[in-house]
Write a protein that binds this DNA or RNA. Structure first.
Lengths: 291, 291
DNA sequence: ATAGGAGTAT
DNA sequence: ATACTCCTAT
């Protein structure tokens, strides 16, 4: 018997938005510690990994470990009908082949109940070595999303160079090339507006939003997220922007992303929130090929 | 060597939005007086003309005249990554075949640098006679945008009649016909909301915007733009709404548009802002044909 | 050619 | 927050 109650359905909605374009079906492994998911993307290039720790639920009960095979598109169809503030309870009997989901409006009396059919999925559990990386860049997740989007307008891949001075993102393409530099310590607004006249009004609106959801949200007060770099050794790596853009969809989960890199080793792109994380792994492009 | 610094990238963003659907590639002619562009639309029906005077830049430097062939879609991909408040500097060497663009965040340390490849474009400089028009109608550009949009829902073309009493826009179509009259001197709100519940909030936001950008914007205080008509002789002309709707995309550049008309002569539709203008020319339909 | 996703505008 | 439009992927 699994029963887990999430006071803010929004968390699961965002997790799903973060991975569903990369992963279509996956096993969710439930234990007394929480719920984990791990899967390669459809073209077996990127690895996505999700953890929702039991502390994030209240109550959380899982009598014995079980692996739940879920079609993420089916789950998404259901979960997107939940309000962000809804209280979400998921339940599974030890023997059933369906997952129960109940959404309760936080204020209203509205109650929606779903039973989602489960799937049998061959899981290929990849052990991920707990690597020590040469460079860790922490920055605003919104800024990361913007950079991947902007550079995606120009080229197919991005070269990331990290030195102790800062990070450099550069990209070449048919229309020209682009280079973007962030200095260590420079703060980017947590929310970056690129197309509004009234940046301040927008900021205000977002600040209000933040205050409103602050009670149940991952992180505290400041509106800007500085670029922080931990560096053992300078790195220079090239990645497919298509994948990084996908990873950036996890940005709504938390205000900061951590990029863990070593030369010639897969990137770990981590979005950590209060009681869990979404992590993506992506091998670098080896040289100037298939751009 | 060309070097021009624009303290508000928004100006160029808006200019581009105004013309990029009509013009895909064009030469930008730079001289010590500023930057000009002139091009027919793809179907050679409408002429678009842009002027950005040197006074709008600080600093502005152009050692000798040069013509820069630009793909507007490429430029748009780049320019839309700039924040409206970003400081934008464009640079071109005398011999290079690329245009450098640098966006600097007004508040943050973010710096984005682009090198955009240029094109060779056969330019066909049309001399535009400095005509004296029989009628000049000045009105709110937002109102103009609304009228073209509204009438576009009804018909393919619009007949514009100007008398000293006012302007009349009328359109016939399959679903019926529409007629819209503006009296001389009647003030239209600079921003017209037609489909929002919360008109007041919207008005407030726009008012704030105006206050904020007022320092650097074309004209002073009032929130309403009266319809003003200068008339030598009444005119009655019919135009394709498809084109007028496109012209109206320049509305964000300034609060007033000037429609210059004489019977059987191309319309001049002018959006003038502080240090430049966007102008469109369009020949009238001759009679009740191809509607 | 159709469907889905992203971005933009209201 | 919702709707519409554009672009990309299948």
């Amino acid at each position: 018997m699994l029963e887990a109650r999430l006071s803010q359905a929004a968390v699961l909605k965002k997790v799903l938005d973060a991975v569903r374009e990369l992963v279509t079906d996956a096993n969710f492994d439930c234990s007394e510690e929480g719920i984990r998911m791990q899967a390669m993307d459809n073209s077996h290039v990127a690895l996505s990994s999700v953890e929702l720790r039991c502390e994030g639920f209240d109550p959380y009960r899982c009598d014995r470990p079980m692996s739940i095979g879920i079609s993420l598109s089916a789950l998404n169809k259901i979960i997107k009908t939940a309000g962000n503030e809804d209280v979400l309870t998921i339940k599974k009997d030890d023997d059933g082949d369906s997952l129960g989901l109940v959404f309760e409006g936080s204020k209203t009396d509205r109650v929606a109940e779903y039973d989602m059919k489960l799937m049998d999925i061959d899981s290929e559990h990849l052990g991920i070595p707990d690597t020590q990386y040469d460079a860790v860049v922490r920055m605003s997740s919104a800024e990361f999303a913007r950079i991947t989007r902007d550079l995606g307008n120009v080229g197919e891949s991005v070269k990331i160079d990290v030195t102790k001075e800062g990070v450099n993102f550069s990209s070449d393409g048919e229309i020209g090339n682009a280079k973007l530099t962030l200095k260590q310590g420079s703060g980017s607004a947590a929310a970056v507006d690129d197309d509004d006249d009234d940046d301040e009004d927008e900021e205000d609106k977002k600040a209000k939003k933040k205050r409103k959801t602050a009670s149940g949200s991952a992180a505290g007060g400041e509106d800007t997220v500085p670029v922080r770099i931990q560096l053992q050794q300078s790195v220079s790596l090239t990645f497919s922007l298509k994948y990084l853009t996908n990873f950036a969809k996890a940005a709504p989960l938390c205000k900061e992303v951590a990029l863990h890199m070593s030369n010639e080793v897969p990137l770990l792109c981590e979005f950590a929130f209060e009681n869990g994380h979404v992590r993506f792994y992506l091998a670098p492009k080896l040289s100037e090929d298939d751009e």
